[in-house]
């Protein structure tokens, strides 16, 4: 009986030590937990307002923390393309980016108010061309809808003539037989608007000239 008794003693001693270790560990973990929350809450209290004018703002960083879009331009832009395609609601709500009445970012207002100053070209040797100040009145087909005043000015801030002429629009007045149905299907203005530029949602953003007022 002696040997099992000894075994039992060792077992008891071992279990006791084990429990003591467990308790010590648990107490440590609890105290660590108690300390941790204030440390996490402190930076969360001050909501950061992201300044789109600051080039080092996290707005312009990719998921790895580097400045986005500065990769090797000779390689396919798949990684940055994917990041750009992502939806970043946090970044959107924290900025003071101007929005239209549909909650979409008003990019034209953004550049007009100098909040962002995009480069003329990625090529430093490219000669900068001043925007073309020429409004075109496009008559709406319907008898009831306002005509469109097309401003070359805001479009030529970023785009060269060759982007649209002559492939999308023949550069002659009245030679482009545009239909709103075709634009909605991705032709004409719909080549960009609704894809990279503001969508067709706000009709009155383009249809501004009352019928007969242009003559």
């Amino acid at each position: 009986m002696t040997a099992p008794f000894k075994h039992r003693f060792y077992l008891k001693a071992f279990l006791l030590m084990f429990f003591a270790a467990c308790l010590w560990y648990a107490a440590d973990a609890i105290s660590a937990e108690e300390k941790a929350p204030p440390a996490q809450q402190a930076p969360g209290k001050a909501t950061p307002i992201l300044d789109p004018g600051d080039p080092s703002s996290i707005l312009y960083l990719d998921t790895s923390g580097k400045l986005a879009g500065t990769g090797d331009s000779t390689k396919p832009p798949s990684q940055y393309y994917k990041i750009g395609m992502g939806w970043h609601p946090q970044a959107l709500t924290d900025t003071r980016l101007p929005r239209d009445k549909y909650g979409l970012i008003d990019w034209a207002k953004l550049v007009k108010s100098n909040m962002v100053k995009p480069r003329w070209s990625l090529d430093p040797n490219d000669e900068e061309m001043p925007p073309l100040d020429l409004d075109i009145i496009i008559t709406a087909k319907s008898d009831f809808v306002n005509d469109v005043r097309y401003p070359h000015w805001i479009h030529t801030w970023w785009l060269k003539c060759e982007v649209c002429h002559p492939k999308i629009f023949v550069p002659a007045k009245g030679q482009n037989k545009m239909f709103m149905t075709e634009i909605a299907q991705g032709q004409w203005c719909g080549r960009c608007h609704g894809k990279v530029s503001f969508p067709l949602t706000d009709c009155n953003r383009c249809h501004t000239v009352p019928k007969g007022a242009s003559k």
Binding site: G103, S142, V145, L200, C203
Partner: peptide, 30 residues
């Protein structure tokens, strides 16, 4: 009803209808 009036926020294009994110937009002609 005319498309002009819809665009101006009347009839189908009332501010809570087809001129808002609640319903499909006016440019979906079809």
């Amino acid at each position: 009803i005319s498309m002009k009036r819809n665009m101006d926020g009347q009839f189908c294009g009332s501010p809570n209808c087809h001129n808002s994110p609640k319903a499909f937009p006016l440019y979906n002609c079809a």
